[in-house]
Amino acid sequence: MLNVNDLSLVIKEGNIPLLKKLNLDIMPGEVHAIMGTNGSGKSTFAKCLIGHPDYQVTAGVLNYTYCGEVFDLNSLEVHERAHKGIFLAFQYPIEIPGVSNEIFLRESVNEVRKANGKITLDPYDFAKLVREKMKLLGIDESFLQREVNGGLSGGEKKKNEILQMLLLEPQLAILDESDSGLDIDALRMVAAGINHFRSPENAVILITHYQRLLNYVRPDFVHIMHEGAIIKSGGPELALQVEDAGYDWLTGVGV
């Protein structure tokens, strides 16, 4: 589904390299956890996948398969990537003043449906769908009339991101620290949402600092990032090792 080969990338402002020859292959049905120290390039990679305008790919391959067709992601606009099933749950979701969740979510779902040749949902059908998903995440009814991410706690914002994932049903979901700042109940809800979402057709990239989430969402692969590249990959046990021993033994620092 996703084929990243020797990908290098700079931040446009200052032309500073942030990703250096990163390699990663993702197949349908897989969950990949990406761990690493602060500043190792995890979030940069996530933003690169959605086409964040601050970054520029300088070398390597970034191919993505959707409906049997291979796309060079660099050639797609941000919203086109969303139409083709790429979704990022933001680490810091953005507030949109004056726009209600209901309108935002419905427009978003319908834009993606339109782009895929599906009929759009009328407000009634949409309300049914969104309420069902909200229930799953324990989100209160009043949420729909509130401004997008306005006046929400950190935990509520993260739940809103998961709600959007459930509504848009992307093919590739990238969750950037969706577990940070959550209490244990909220963490369980978020994990339940991710597990509900998992299917043989889609794939998930979990960016996290902690093993904690991985107790609830079992990854197929764990990757350790350092200085803009994946330096070690393994199974779920790798996350446990990192939890125990930190990153130093992998990065060579302090050895």
Partner: peptide, 25 residues
């Protein structure tokens, strides 16, 4: 720009994102 980007990552074009914010306001 961050607000527009956020809406774009949800499949909403840039022009639509601007109009959504203005209309809401």
């Amino acid at each position: 720009e961050e607000q527009l980007l956020y809406l774009q990552t949800r499949g909403i074009s840039r022009e639509m994102a601007v109009s959504m914010i203005i209309n809401g306001f």
